[in-house]
Design a protein around this nucleic acid. Structure first.
Lengths: 243, 243
DNA sequence: CAGGGCTGTGACGAATCGGTGACATTCCGC
DNA sequence: GCGGAATGTCACCGATTCGTCACAGCCCTG
């Protein structure tokens, strides 16, 4: 039930201003995260060669390679660790640049520490499955009712042998549901965990993805045995018909 | 009251509507949490000066300082207690405002009590690895006269082995009755604790739900042994047939 | 810039829940 | 016992929620 048995998430902070770095590190540590620090891009890249982490907090203005460059390099190396950019400028174009270079979120200085922590939490929640979960072979593949889903490739084979190509959202929703196997997951939970805390598709969107998952994996989509509706709240996923 | 209350998380509810407050408090108590209440922001801040708690349930619309203000003040004071906002408006922008003022989660009224409890559990679980205490447990499962009820999933297995899917109101009424096991609970009590806020249905509505519960769980619904009528007052729940 | 997959929305019917009222039944005081 | 009140029981209606489909943007690819 509780996948949180894992160790505390590890966060790397890349920041050249020692004061800001100290404050950020302190707060992250107080939140219970493991923390490491780097003061420029090359140091960060070197560190990341040998170690994986759950999140990189990356200042844009760094001596040497700037934050965008660091992030782009990482992505080119196939490293998909989530990146939260920090920048002094409030220019919206920077946000776009940040996202284009492969970042996941963006925060303009000066920021409230509380908001910073909020974003960290949101990103880690959203990307949890991708790293901690898919890194583990156990949860990389999910079997239920004759179906088999491989989350690494977004590929599945349905009970009737049919090959299925899941989309990203489909896979993420399924993943979140499966991780809370047996427990109720509200639509809002799904929205937050799959889409993020500041995106607001209507809750009907969730219903539609459930519909698609049922079509893919239920023998009788009209009488679901795995993707169950909890009236007025959300959905519940069961691997087996009736536990 | 609760034997395992040793490490029960303490929740502060800040809500000016007494009906809603009563419903929320009752349900949190039934889940096994320690609870306290405040009816406005200043009262809450004063209380929090002297005491720590695991979670603050904070209405946005309060007399005097509003919820956002209370939360912001707390954060400025270095208080990082998780905050769950309640608000009448469904505006997504409010959600962002809530989160950015330092809240951890957000729920729009009118909400289903089940979803509310879901979120409380989620936040406290998130906080658990930090405090490493086990927490909750609570009255998740109730057994009586061969029946077994799982309040988390609103599912039950009746004495005859039949699977039952409880509705939200059915489950809530049963939970309140069971929580006051053996004691008389008046219809007005039930209305307040289960419905909590918003609407006040007639007392006959309560009778109807009692009827449904009897049909589900009594061997002989006409001669109830668990859901007893106290004539002129209300109802009484007994786990065992003989008092 | 044309085409195709992914995503999100709106619309509409179906299903469910909650709540009410009508009537039968039971209980209480007399 | 008798009458009135409270409760048991049922059937039904409105509101909400959900399932389902069709379609319109969007982004990427060619």
């Amino acid at each position: 039930m509780n996948p949180a048995a894992q160790a505390a998430p590890h966060v790397l902070v890349v920041e050249d201003d020692p004061h800001l770095a100290a404050g950020v590190l302190e707060n992250l540590r107080a939140e219970g995260y493991e923390v490491s620090a780097a003061s420029d891009g090359e140091q960060a890249l070197a560190w990341l060669k040998g170690t994986r982490c759950a999140l990189i907090v990356l200042d844009v203005m760094l001596p040497g390679i700037d934050g965008f460059g660091v992030c782009r390099t990482l992505r080119e190396q196939g490293n998909n660790t989530p990146v939260l950019f920090l920048t002094a400028r409030g220019d919206p174009a920077d946000r776009v640049r940040g996202l284009e270079s492969g970042g996941d979120d963006y925060l303009a200085k000066p920021f409230h520490l509380q908001e910073f922590l909020l974003r960290v939490r949101a990103i880690l929640r959203r990307w949890d499955w991708y790293h901690s979960a898919s890194a583990t072979a156990a949860t990389a593949v999910l079997s239920f009712g004759g179906n088999e889903v491989d989350f690494r490739a977004f590929r599945a084979r349905a009970w009737n042998g049919e090959a299925q190509e899941l989309t990203e959202k489909e896979a993420m929703i399924l993943k979140v549901l499966a991780e809370h196997g047996g427990e109720i997951v509200s639509r809002e939970d799904l929205l937050e965990k799959v889409w993020g805390y500041d995106v607001f598709p209507s809750t009907r969107t969730v219903d539609n993805f459930i519909l698609r998952l049922r079509k893919r994996f239920e023998r009788d989509p009209a009488n679901p045995r795995h993707f169950l509706t909890v009236w007025g709240v959300g959905y519940r996923f069961l691997k087996d018909g009736e536990p």
